[in-house]
Design a binder for these strands. Structure first.
Lengths: 211, 211
DNA sequence: ACATGTGAAGCTATTCACAGCC
DNA sequence: GGCTGTGAATAGCTTCACATGT
């Protein structure tokens, strides 16, 4: 299979396009143009066409893109045609909020395991899943064939637990703890840090105020 | 004041550098080199030097960067020398998790108001702050001189509430709802969407599996 | 006529490499 | 000798503009 070198930035926009297309589908639009997608996604038509062209020749000249077919194609590119098996490490307030959030299952992600280190929580129900001990991390991840792990752990223990997660063969981590994770080559990490985002917003406020 | 055109990407890295420097400060390092920062931040030394050069000539040739002074300088650039006044709209599970998260106040953000639409919640205590009705949004934002608003609302009502938030003069929004916000010019928005992040991770898994 | 797909141009960001300073 | 600051070179992304196909 060829090394289709899709730009990083394009990959980041594919989920946005997908959301727009699902909206268009709900609105009963059979076909949509690059201009239409661009308006919904907050970008421009040339960008949309270039991005989609990396996935193949998906449109029809003179007509536009078939909504249904394009949803199918982007979903396939994103590897979410079936359900992706996800585990959450750390069932504190944030982990709990995520587990109960219904938006994930709607988008092809199934949270099938939850871990915590607190003996008082272990064995209790977490919104439909039994909380397992972090001691059992490796075995439970393997048993459930987990593909993606979400780290919702205290900063101090995150790297240590992430090491065990990657050691267990996990290749994708969403890190919600405010620490930079070091992982082996071949492991994808996405970092979510709201403090960072607030600081970036603060920068723009500071800039604005002084002009 | 000059139009110091700091690249967007540099701005995004400043909070990362700041975190590294605070770590170095805790470790009692008086001085750090661009190589040292780069290692902690997960980038390269040239990048660090170029980024920091946008803020001024902050280092000393042959020596490196004074940790204390650099922390001071980056904090000033990020506008977080004092406390930034933040409000959360939507006190569901996610909003609750954010309010109770101590990492914000440590980093210069003070959550001084919380809103919800549910009459059962209004007037009750949310971790030290009384929950206010979204009916009072404009007045309470003004009274408390709120600078940044975090939207932790259901997708369906987010745009409508964001319109009122910007109407009240707020210039910075952190949006946790899975919708693309449309805001007037001059308003900064940061979007956090974990479904999107999971989809990006899924893309890399799909790529990997087929090589 | 209309909308895609795509080379080419233009722009932005990263990396290199070395002069300048401690 | 060591490390910063920075012009120059490189790489990567976005936008343009038009040929191509319906």
């Amino acid at each position: 299979m060829e090394r289709t070198q899709i730009p990083e930035t394009t990959i980041h926009r594919l989920p946005v396009y997908l959301r727009c297309l699902l909206q268009a589908q709900q609105d009963r639009m059979p076909v949509i143009s690059s201009v239409g997608i661009a308006e919904m996604a907050g970008t421009n038509a040339a960008q949309v066409r270039k991005d989609l062209s990396y996935l193949g020749e998906l449109g029809t000249r003179g007509i536009g893109y078939d909504v249904e077919a394009l949803i199918e194609h982007i979903s396939k590119s994103l590897g979410i045609t079936g359900l992706r098996r996800v585990a959450i490490v750390g069932y504190g307030r944030l982990g709990g909020a995520l587990k109960s959030y219904t938006g994930f299952s709607d988008r092809g992600f199934d949270i099938i395991a939850v871990f915590d280190a607190d003996p008082a929580k272990i064995g209790t129900d977490a919104d439909g899943v039994i909380i397992r001990s972090t001691d059992e991390l490796e075995t439970v991840l393997a048993e459930n064939r987990v593909e993606i792990v979400v780290m919702a752990t205290p900063a101090g223990v995150t790297q240590e637990l992430a090491d065990r997660v990657t050691g267990a063969g996990i290749k994708a981590i969403l890190n919600l703890a405010p620490v930079r994770l070091h992982v082996p080559d071949g492991v994808a990490v996405r970092q979510v840090c709201m403090s960072t985002d607030l600081q970036i917003l603060s920068f723009y406020l500071a800039q604005d105020g002084m002009k």
